[in-house]
């Protein structure tokens, strides 16, 4: 209970202080709008926020799915061939350490002029994919040496070794990486939309830019609030998935 009550209490206290400070000091609403004003901005434009949230969430989910498939397959290929891993891994690192904001304009120019969503998905995929690859690789390497010997001794086929030993060993690592990559996919999608600017973008990031251009600061905050909600939704969905899958496999303590 403490885990829920304490953060909620702290958040409420912050909002109350914010409201009090802004009201008593007559802070102009284009500098810092009060929480009640932000709340109105959310309520009054609900259809707009829902639409934009849906668009952002859809980009996040598409990018994350692509990241999971490509990350897992590449990690498997790495585990099959050390040479392949040594050849390809540096490229994955380059892609990871280059700031996505710097790559985004290129991607927009190549594939995003007529279809921003396509560029958003690709950019979000680039940032979300590396933690999955790195964790899955680590998971596949952490196989118990004795168990591996037993599989050899009792004549396991490659498929049996994968299904009964490698996959279950790597699964907790994969699930942990999803919590990280889910958040990164959201960030990647937002960054892409910021870089794309106007065009056909319809997500939350564009709504935030739009509100900023019109000096509707309370709408900017409203957009940020929706983004935070989506981010938490993604994180806690995967945390929950992790909890239940590991519980089902009897290893929530490991």
């Amino acid at each position: 209970m403490k885990r829920f009550l304490l953060p909620i209490a702290a958040f409420t206290a912050l909002l109350l202080f914010w409201q009090y400070y802004v009201t008593t000091n007559d802070v102009p609403k284009f500098v810092l709008p009060s929480p009640s004003l932000i709340w109105l901005a959310i309520i009054d434009n609900m259809p707009l926020w829902l639409d934009a949230s849906l668009s952002t969430l859809s980009v996040t989910i598409k990018a994350l799915s692509a990241a999971i498939i490509s990350g897992v397959l590449l990690a498997l290929a790495f585990s099959l061939s050390r040479t392949f891993e040594a050849t390809i891994y540096p490229f994955a690192i380059i892609l990871q350490v280059t700031p996505v904001v710097a790559i985004a304009p290129l991607v927009i120019i190549w594939v995003g002029i007529d279809n921003v969503e396509r560029a958003q998905v690709i950019i979000a995929w680039i940032v979300a994919f590396f933690p999955i690859l790195a964790n899955m690789s680590a998971g596949l390497k952490s196989v118990d040496a004795n168990l591996s010997d037993l599989f050899t001794l009792y004549g396991a086929t490659r498929l049996q070794r994968f299904r009964l030993l490698l996959w279950p060993t790597a699964l907790p690592y994969l699930l942990a990486s999803l919590k990280v990559s889910g958040g990164l996919a959201l960030i990647g999608g937002v960054v892409a939309e910021f870089v794309a600017g106007s065009g056909t973008a319809t997500g939350l990031a564009w709504r935030i830019i739009e509100a900023g251009n019109r000096l509707q600061i309370e709408k900017m905050f409203a957009g940020l609030f929706m983004l935070a909600i989506i981010g938490m939704l993604v994180f806690y969905s995967f945390a929950l998935l992790e909890y239940y899958v590991l519980k089902r496999f009897g290893q929530e303590n490991t």
């Binding site: 118990d144 004795n146 168990l147 037993l150 009964l164 030993l165 279950p168 699964l171 496999f249 009897g250 290893q251 490991t254």
Partner: peptide, 8 residues
Amino acid sequence: DPALMPWA
């Protein structure tokens, strides 16, 4: 080490 599969 008993080397049991923890997920089974």
